[in-house]
């Protein structure tokens, strides 16, 4: 089944399409829309990280934005101190990865699952929101970086070419970097899910008890998946801090945590494309709704979510996939005229 879904042909086609879009969009889209698109792409990386953890690992994490925020803060604090962005970029992946590993270790090895896992991860995120918000005093300084409490950290230095702090990345460069990162993570995750490790992760989602009885330590595989997802979310946080050149505790807020889950629900769990599609679609709708005064944006988004949960519970991508397969593999029924000719 997995082999069927993730054949190499599909992967090559998806990669080619991604590259074409990446190269073509800046030529046809106006600069304001490019700024929006860049944020969509960055958030799609965050959605993809939850798509891995929840859709394939079966781990319902309500606190994916915690790793996103930690990555963003780790980058911002480090780049202000170091000047050069090479090490800060690495730290934005390593620090949230380690945090995910530590949190996951205590949760998975204590056999905390399902809704309890979701509640704890959400609580951790909200604790981070409060903690970061309480750092507004002048004593809350790391090196030369003032954390700033709810005011956040402004003027975050942009990424630069490795070893050359004077060669900062332009805004177009950030779009290409974000797009290539999204594409690379998508391809990497598809290859990982086709590997032995990925198959064990999926098998644990299907039947954890059975996988353990075959000799696989489910806790380890879930921890590894959770850590990878945390590191990816952290990288997205780094790009987000670059996009706005600003970071504040809002990234740990309830709204941020909830919207990642909505993207994945709308796009569809159990696929990698689903979270990306869901993220782009919902963000685009939110942008359009935000530009008008007639309807309350949150009310419309809530209605859309309820509609999806009730009418398209699998999400957009799996539903389209199912419909396509039904059409493709529909048994052939001869027209009546032909049937009558049969002797």
């Amino acid at each position: 089944m997995i082999a069927h879904w993730q054949g190499n042909g599909g992967l090559v086609a998806a990669t080619a399409l991604g590259l074409v879009l990446l190269l073509a969009l800046p030529q046809v889209v106006d600069p304001v829309m490019m700024i929006e698109l860049t944020s969509y792409v960055i958030m799609a990386i965050l959605a993809l990280s939850l798509g891995l953890i929840w859709g394939y690992g079966g781990i319902l994490c309500f606190g994916q934005s915690a790793f996103f925020g930690i990555g963003a803060y780790a980058y911002a604090i480090a780049v202000i101190n170091f000047g050069d962005s090479t090490i800060p970029l690495l730290l934005s992946i390593i620090v949230p990865g380690l945090f995910a590993a530590l949190l996951g270790y205590f949760l998975f090895y204590a056999r905390i699952t399902d809704v309890y896992f979701g509640v704890i991860t959400l609580t951790v995120t909200l604790i981070l929101y409060k903690v970061m918000g309480a750092t507004s005093g002048s004593q809350y300084v790391i090196g030369t970086a003032a954390i700033g409490g709810y005011n956040g950290i402004p003027a975050v230095p942009p990424l630069n070419f490795p070893g050359r702090p004077d060669a900062a990345l332009s805004f177009d460069g950030l779009f290409y970097l974000s797009g290539l990162t999204l594409l690379a993570i998508y391809v990497g995750l598809r290859l990982m899910l086709k590997s032995r490790f990925g198959q064990v992760v999926v098998a644990i989602r299907e039947n954890e008890r059975r996988a353990e009885l075959l000799g696989y330590d489910a806790r380890f595989y879930k921890l590894a998946t959770f850590t990878i997802g945390g590191a990816i979310a952290g990288l997205a946080g780094c790009l987000f801090a670059n996009w706005g050149m600003f970071i504040s505790p809002d990234v740990f807020g309830l709204a941020q945590s909830a919207q990642v889950i909505i993207w994945v629900i709308v796009g569809g769990t159990g696929t990698l494309l689903g979270p990306i599609v869901g993220c782009f679609a919902i963000q685009w709708i939110a942008t359009k709704l935000g530009a008008q005064q007639v309807l309350n944006a949150n009310l419309v988004l809530g209605t859309i979510l309820i509609g999806f949960v009730l009418l398209v519970p699998k999400g957009v991508v799996p539903t389209i996939g199912d419909a396509f397969r039904r059409l493709k593999f529909r048994p052939y029924v001869a027209p009546l005229v032909e049937q009558r000719r049969v002797p």
């Binding site: 089944m1 997995i2 198959q199 064990v200 999926v202 098998a203 039947n207 059975r210 075959l214 696989y216």
Partner: peptide, 18 residues
């Protein structure tokens, strides 16, 4: 307790850990 969504081949491969 077979894995319902995995193919027969993938089910067999899951047993190869040792």
């Amino acid at each position: 307790d077979i894995f319902p969504l995995l193919s027969v081949m993938e089910n067999l491969k899951m047993g190869e850990i040792m």
